[in-house]
Design a protein around this nucleic acid. Structure first.
Lengths: 192, 192
DNA sequence: GACCAGATTCTAGCACCGCTAGACAATCGA
DNA sequence: TCGATTGTCTAGCGGTGCTAGAATCTGGTC
């Protein structure tokens, strides 16, 4: 059976190659440049090969989003683990979140802006997405304050971060004052 | 000169028709359904006519965004004018903002999500956009708190609302708890 | 080693997209 | 009434996501 196994492994490798290439291309030139033709050319296969791995472009975006969610969860946990005290942890979390969005704009778009065909905030939500939310919740639960449900607090805090991230990157907010905005957000929203 | 005036008026009418039709179509079937062919068909002219009024699809989206900004400014001012006391005003503002986003999703997308070729947060920002931000600032300045710049506070509060609006509509946040989230946001962020 | 069956990959094409050149028709001033 | 100008249309370009069906390559069997 080692032959079939090898084939399966090679197929999985190629699927990963497609996702990695899509991500790379999106980060380099934006998602509008990620066309099935260009993608096929970069992986040195013809277009239909893409469709033997994914149902369509949407599913490729979804795969990039899942990869990104796993990464983001790790980044957030690493950032908070290195901080001392509740306030420092929340500030570190917020900074790490916005840094991730700034340095991986295409991945961030795939996660929260584009249609990757993923289910959110439901039972059948893919594990990486649930885990990224869990990473937020772990650090934010301790500052939710009396009588406020940790999940509700996390959702609200997350929404604020998401708003800052997207409005800044879309040129709707000048990027100079991101620091003070984060300070304001943390000092007002979190109960320390 | 009344003949030339009439022609100019008719041209302006047709430009408005294009914008109104684009908006209508976008609200009915989403922006991805707003193609130049369909738009041309609906206004009962051929495609090139669109390009005699607008540089391209992007500029049409921009026109819808400007129309939306003017409307939103009016809605926000009306909502806050009818409320008594600082907290009631801020709550009314937040609710009105989220309501507008919920009931005019395509317009909201044109304003903040899509590329309408508009300049934001700059000197040459179109008046309606500046005015919409001003409408937010008018009600939020009084609750910014000591030592916090009203503009900075407004930007942050706005970002939080924008995050709630977009994440909810994209299915990233369950819509049931929007009320409590807004309450939390107002009670924590605003200094009453 | 030759052959066949099945899996794999490619070529070529569909219907659609935003946008535009150039032909045509309607209108105006002389 | 004629010529010029303005307005509008037809037709087409190069691109998109996606797919049917041809071609090729591979592994197992005689």
């Amino acid at each position: 059976m080692s032959l079939q196994e090898r084939k399966q492994r090679e197929r999985a490798d190629r699927a990963r190659l497609i996702v990695a290439t899509a991500r790379e291309l999106a980060e380099q030139q934006g998602w509008e440049a990620v066309t099935t033709r260009r993608l096929a050319e970069r992986i040195e296969y013809s277009q239909p090969v893409l469709y033997s791995h994914f149902r369509g472009k949407r599913e490729i975006i979804g795969a990039v989003a899942l990869e990104g969610a796993a990464e983001m969860a790790a980044v957030l946990r690493a950032a908070t683990a290195a901080a001392d005290g509740p306030r420092a942890r929340v500030v570190a979390l917020a900074r790490a979140y916005l840094d991730f969005a700034e340095h991986n704009p295409a991945v961030y778009d795939a996660m929260f802006q584009l249609d990757g065909g993923l289910a959110f905030a439901r039972e059948d939500t893919p594990a990486p997405l649930k885990d990224a939310f869990a990473a937020l919740l772990e650090s934010l639960a301790e500052v939710a304050g009396e009588g406020v449900h940790p999940a509700l607090f996390t959702e609200t805090f997350w929404a604020a971060l998401h708003g800052l991230a997207t409005l800044t990157r879309a040129g709707r907010l000048p990027p100079e004052h991101t620091g003070p905005r984060v300070e304001l957000l943390v000092d007002r929203l979190a109960v320390l």
